[in-house]
Design a protein around this nucleic acid. Structure first.
Lengths: 224, 224
DNA sequence: TTTAATTTTAAGGTTTTTTTAAGTTTTGGG
DNA sequence: CCCAAAACTTAAAAAAACCTTAAAATTAAA
């Protein structure tokens, strides 16, 4: 799960980042509205935590712009106590929840979990494609009675493939979503994981195949 | 593809509806501006055919309101001959095309197809010509249940042909667009790819053919 | 701390695409 | 009808993309 934190209070953000990472989330940070908007526009995040009061571009503007651009990533707004009317605005413009500063990290975590759960509920716990299922709780690949465990990266790649049913995903997207936008991960790394995954698909006797689209990336297909 | 027809002339609308449905479009009708606006606001349509002269709310108002609300569905305006200045207004306010009443249904259908094609070009998943389709996601040539993968260059050439449906493209254009302005790619290279493509068209049993125009270039034709 | 698992890097081999080249066929004007 | 230009086809060389494996590095677990 990938979270974007947008706030000009660097201290707060960095502290949150550490906590969230400990809770197994993958986190990116932006220290002003402009950068936050840019990152958010990629649409690769599962949740955005967004402060209202920021220099340059404020949170409400970021929110409105995102919704206009059909980016529907769940958004959790942060606001100072005095900005209550802003909060209401935020909810009207399509924020999913808000929390007032200062807050207890426990509460923030609880709300983040709630939002992600809501999102997950929408997509379900077990994803399926053709003869294969992916159990998001146990990280297992399942076909009939056969199960096989996936590593975290393997899991993330297969999850992206299965969530994009049919459509192809280019390697850049994999890198962005799984490794983050500033990384020096190479395409070869993905190729290695795809190789692993193909082996495991065969191992459980699945007909489903990861088709490669030369020069682009991969897509899932139901072999024959 | 989903089309919304808005006009107070019930007869006209219903007749059009029948024809469009025969052409495999999904059609909704509204018999006044108010209902039309309501339906259009949902944003689920791929195209809206909108009459200018209507009771209650006229077409121009509907158009303006939609664009204000960031509904960017392509709109084809209908207008009587006497409403020329309205037409100009319409185009200024964000209509995509207009046609004057009375019109020949063939022409309307052609314009509808043209607008939808433009949309497809932008969001673009599958392009079609005659009995053949080009899947821009997987780089595959599709006819009926038969698919065959294209290389990137093959794909680009076929894409240009299909986007220019009917019109011929000279070899210089191919080179410029695909290889760039400063390249030493020769015409023969294109000829080679055309040869490959023809073989693949035959392989999927398509009647569509790439016709060569001596001294110029190529064009797509539906064989017999 | 040791062990195990996961992740990444690296390298060699394979396949596919792209280009070049050369011989063959088609076309249309003279 | 003949010829030259244009177009076609095929094979093969060159380049690019991809796959697989093993080993190294990192991280997590016992």
């Amino acid at each position: 799960m990938k979270i974007l934190l947008v706030d000009d209070e660097k201290q707060l953000i960095d502290a949150l980042s550490v906590i969230l990472k400990k809770n197994n989330y993958s986190v990116d940070c932006a220290y002003n509205g402009e950068d936050g908007l840019d990152l958010a526009m990629s649409g690769i995040y599962d949740l955005i935590v967004l402060d209202i009061m920021m220099p340059k571009i404020d949170g409400i503007t970021v929110l409105k712009t995102l919704r206009q651009q059909k980016i529907n990533t769940p958004i959790l707004m942060l606001s100072a106590k005095s900005e209550i009317s802003d909060k209401i605005d935020g909810l009207n413009f399509g924020a999913d929840d808000y929390i007032t500063k200062p807050f207890i990290t426990e509460e923030l975590l609880a709300r983040i979990r709630a939002l992600l759960r809501r999102k997950e509920k929408f997509t379900g716990d077990v994803l399926s494609f053709g003869d294969i299922s992916l159990d998001r709780d146990t990280f297992e690949l399942v076909r009939d009675k056969k199960k096989i465990a996936l590593g975290k990266k393997e899991f993330q790649i297969f999850e992206m493939l299965i969530l994009n049913e049919g459509k192809s995903i280019d390697k850049e997207k994999f890198i962005e979503k799984i490794w983050g936008y500033d990384t020096d991960a190479e395409y070869n790394t993905i190729e290695v994981y795809v190789s692993f995954l193909r082996k495991k698909l065969t191992a459980v006797g699945s007909k489903t195949e990861i088709k490669s689209i030369r020069g682009i990336g991969y897509t899932l297909g139901e072999g024959k």
